[in-house]
Design a protein around this nucleic acid. Structure first.
Length: 618
DNA sequence: TTTAGGG
DNA sequence: CCCTAAA
């Protein structure tokens, strides 16, 4: 393909993405779904091209756009018309949707461009280009978002800056540098859709514009880049009815320069300036988040290709190949996510850190013939999981079994704060797409505090909200059952909660049960046996005291009075433990496992303890 | 849901 | 620790 040759000149797998320059974003009747019919798409492309040319003429008449129109015309000729197809609706939609304070002009949406090139280019070039551009897009968005937001904190209350990709919806890297939350890092995994963008109530329109524009700048055509790195900024600045804050423009300029250098470095384009080669972005940001973001984008791009092929009912071989690639990539990403999905919520000094180690997929229907190979089964399972995840996930948060619906609540208001029983938090991932056959709620398989050090810190923290359960103790306290209501045994704060193993069909979702525990009370959904958690001496002591106080046969009362905070100990557990204790006591010491002289030692010890004068071992 | 008891 | 009958 001619276009491929033009694009695929990166000798190091680094392609310079071509961006048609669209100085003015005229409203175009263009659905984001036009790709279903290529003829329809071509019509729209023609319309878009006409609009662009008209805009270009207008632009060229402006004195301030010197030197850009010509280069623009060149790139216009060199780029296939398809590339323009949906860039316009993307931008126009974004601008209209958010008003952008009159910012109705911008650059062509790189996303639309990407999507088009994905269609037009051959497979390899598509992938490489998409990867390259999307990586660049991601990074630059990140860079700009950081720069922009950090520079405009006072005026921008930016909850979430979104980069939009038509068809795939919006894939958002949330960078809320709002003035209210000093430092928040989030990755929105949910595959946001256009409607989801509207839900970003905190999204600042101006910043959103800027970010989208940055995406444009990131993918300038080499010719354009060589003609002047600031051209894109000129376009933005002159054509929008509303001039963004100068600082915003400056940042855009900066990003443009930077991007030119980056995109061109390593390429053999004759117009490569070579200046600032090897430029390293000032702000590296969270590489992991960016990589995941980029991976997400790539997957979306490739899935789009597959969907295209399926819709056309042709080129199934190519589709299968694409699926395979997608599968591979997605599986990697899924695994990474399983291991590392972390939800950070930092709010000044009061922070709540959670780590969701993995999710369990409860129901996965696999239909496969008996004569299928194991490999095909693996692929089928992988596809099913991929479908679930790729279909978009809606996150739900369960606190003590209750679904927290109000998204506007603060974590503190919702009861997610230090000192609270964070092991009562559950996360659900519901499939958003119409994947009825796979619809279901993915329950968190593992959740834990971030790091053991945090557990200690956590144990020492006081929650500002009233909390009956915050009695962190490293050592199990002696309990006086004369006041059963005062007996608290918060073992779960100091002992690692362990969880049962997963019985998920998908092998790579099997968790490491020892490292990443979750409250047992939340995890009997899948029938797995709870992990064995032997009673500690302290627990036995409390149990004995409670039984002594309350008598046998009142296991519920024992539970409530002495083990109310130990969610992993049910009254049945206490009853069973008592049963074993009685049995152990009834048998000869030499028949017991463990230490025969245990009780005598305990009796001696407890008698020496003034806090527990009533101890009466069984 | 809780208790009791076998597995 | 699971399962379940019985209350």
């Amino acid at each position: 393909m001619v276009l491929q040759k033009r694009l695929d000149y990166g000798s190091h797998g680094h392609q310079v993405p071509i961006k048609p320059r669209v100085p003015i974003l005229a409203p175009v009747k263009c659905s984001t779904r036009i790709r279903k019919k290529q003829m329809f798409a071509l019509d729209l492309l023609a319309t878009a091209a006409e609009t662009l040319l008209a805009d270009q003429e207008n632009l060229s008449s402006r004195p301030n756009i010197d030197g850009t129109a010509e280069g623009y015309a060149t790139s216009m000729k060199s780029v296939k018309a398809e590339q323009f197809a949906e860039a316009l609706p993307l931008r126009s939609m974004a601008m209209r949707k958010y008003g952008c304070k009159g910012c109705t002009v911008g650059c062509a949406g790189v996303c639309g461009f990407l999507r088009q090139t994905n269609i037009c280019l051959s497979e390899n070039s598509t992938r490489n280009l998409a990867d390259s551009v999307l990586e660049s897009l991601t990074e630059k968005s990140d860079v700009l978002a950081k720069d922009l937001f950090s520079s405009n904190r006072k005026s921008h209350r930016l909850g979430c800056a979104l980069g939009m990709i038509p068809e795939y919806g919006a894939i958002g890297v949330c960078r809320p540098w709002s003035t209210r939350s000093a430092k928040v890092k989030q990755v929105h995994w949910a595959r946001a859709r256009p409607t989801a963008i509207r839900n970003q109530a905190d999204g600042d329109a101006t910043a959103l514009c800027a970010l989208v524009e940055t995406m444009d700048l990131d993918t300038k055509h080499p010719a354009e880049a060589s003609s002047g790195s600031s051209s894109g900024v000129h376009l933005c600045g002159h054509d929008r009815g509303h001039i963004s804050p100068p600082l915003c423009l400056a940042k855009l300029q900066h990003a443009a320069d930077r991007d030119d250098d980056e995109n061109l470095s390593g390429c053999v384009h004759p117009s490569t300036s070579g200046n600032n080669r090897g430029y390293i972005p000032h702000y590296i940001g969270d590489r992991r988040i960016r990589r995941l973001f980029a991976s997400r984008l790539r997957k979306a791009a490739r899935n789009k290709i597959c969907g295209e092929m399926y819709n056309k009912g042709s080129k199934l071989n190519l589709c299968a190949k694409k699926l395979s690639t997608t599968r591979h990539r997605v599986q990697q990403t899924t695994f990474k996510r399983k291991r590392h999905v972390q939800l950070y919520n930092e709010k000044s000094s009061n922070e709540v850190k959670l780590t969701i180690k993995s999710f369990n997929i409860p129901e996965l229907l696999i239909e496969i013939p008996e004569n299928a190979t194991v490999g095909s089964l693996k692929k089928t399972v992988s596809d099913a999981v991929t479908t679930i995840i790729e279909g978009g996930l809606r996150v739900g948060i369960l606190l003590q079994g209750k679904n927290i619906q109000n998204d506007n609540k603060t974590l503190r208001q919702a009861g997610i704060c230090r000192g609270k029983k964070l092991d009562d938090i559950g996360f659900t991932l519901e499939c958003e797409a119409g994947q009825d056959s796979h619809a279901g709620v993915i329950m968190p398989e593992e959740m834990d505090f971030v790091g053991a050090s945090f557990v200690d810190k956590f144990a020492m923290m006081k929650c500002e909200e009233p909390d009956d359960n915050q009695q962190p103790m490293q050592d199990f306290p002696g309990c006086t059952l004369s006041d059963p209501g005062s007996v608290n045994c918060p073992m779960e704060w100091t002992t690692q909660e362990t969880s049962a193993s997963s019985q998920a069909i998908v092998p790579f979702l099997t968790p490491n049960i020892e490292m990443f525990p979750l409250s047992n009370s939340k995890r009997s959904d899948f029938g797995q046996r709870r992990i064995r958690r032997p009673f500690s001496v302290a627990e036995v002591e409390v149990l004995v005291k409670a039984v002594e106080q309350l008598g046998t046969g009142r296991w519920r009362d024992v539970k409530l009075s002495a083990f109310d905070n130990a969610d992993h100990r049910t009254y049945v557990d206490l009853k069973d433990k008592w049963k074993t204790l009685v049995h152990t006591a009834s048998i000869a010491p030499h028949q017991r496992r463990g230490e025969p002289a245990y009780w005598s030692q305990q009796q001696t010890k407890l008698q020496d303890d003034p806090q527990v004068p009533e101890m009466c071992p069984t």
